[in-house]
């Protein structure tokens, strides 16, 4: 028997449904393609929050600002293609804040480490000690595994299903 695997994209996705005799805010049901489609390019919108930890969704379109974090982060590309550029930070350039990505004013002046070109289903290490930039020729979607930080955008009321109806 041949199987058809269903994936989603910015252009085509189906949301599921949530039918509960409960406060739906407790479940924070959303869809990453819908969130990315309604966001500004490179707006890092939280779709998961586990105390200080978050997963952010970003629509990569054009060139992002440069970011850095005081810990490893990870990106999973879910639609399109994203090229991640990396620059090595000097010790005194590594951000010292508690967690999450911060936006740098410009490309850091350290050495280029290289780049990773990733497509749907690829997971990319955004290593501690490096600054990174996302570049996409066409609108693409990535999930960022990180810590709640200065760049994390929270708009749960806008992105979550709050009424018991077809999501």
């Amino acid at each position: 028997m041949a199987y058809k695997t269903r994936t989603g994209s910015l252009d085509s996705y189906d949301k599921g449904l949530i039918e509960l005799n409960d406060d739906l805010r407790k479940y924070a049901f959303s869809n990453i393609f819908e969130v990315a489609g309604n966001a500004q390019p490179f707006e890092r919108v939280a779709v998961v929050q586990n105390l200080e930890y978050v997963a952010e969704v970003v629509r990569s379109e054009g060139e992002s600002p440069w970011y850095a974090a005081p810990h490893d982060e990870f990106a999973i590309v879910m639609d399109g293609e994203v090229t991640f550029h990396f620059v090595k930070l000097e010790d005194d350039q590594v951000p010292g804040h508690e967690g999450g990505a911060i936006r740098l004013g410009a490309k850091p002046n350290g050495p280029n480490m290289g780049r990773v070109k990733a497509r749907r289903g690829h997971q990319v290490l955004l290593p501690q000690g490096a600054a990174y930039q996302l570049v996409s020729a066409k609108p693409s979607v990535a999930i960022l595994q990180t810590v709640d930080g200065p760049e994390t955008v929270k708009k749960w009321d806008e992105i979550c299903v709050l009424k018991g109806e077809q999501a």
């Binding site: 269903r6 599921g16 819908e34 997963a55």
Partner: peptide, 14 residues
């Protein structure tokens, strides 16, 4: 029982 949730590709739920 409280109900059900159907998650499709791209859906996120706590």
């Amino acid at each position: 029982p409280r109900g059900r949730i159907v998650m499709k590709a791209g859906d996120v739920c706590a």
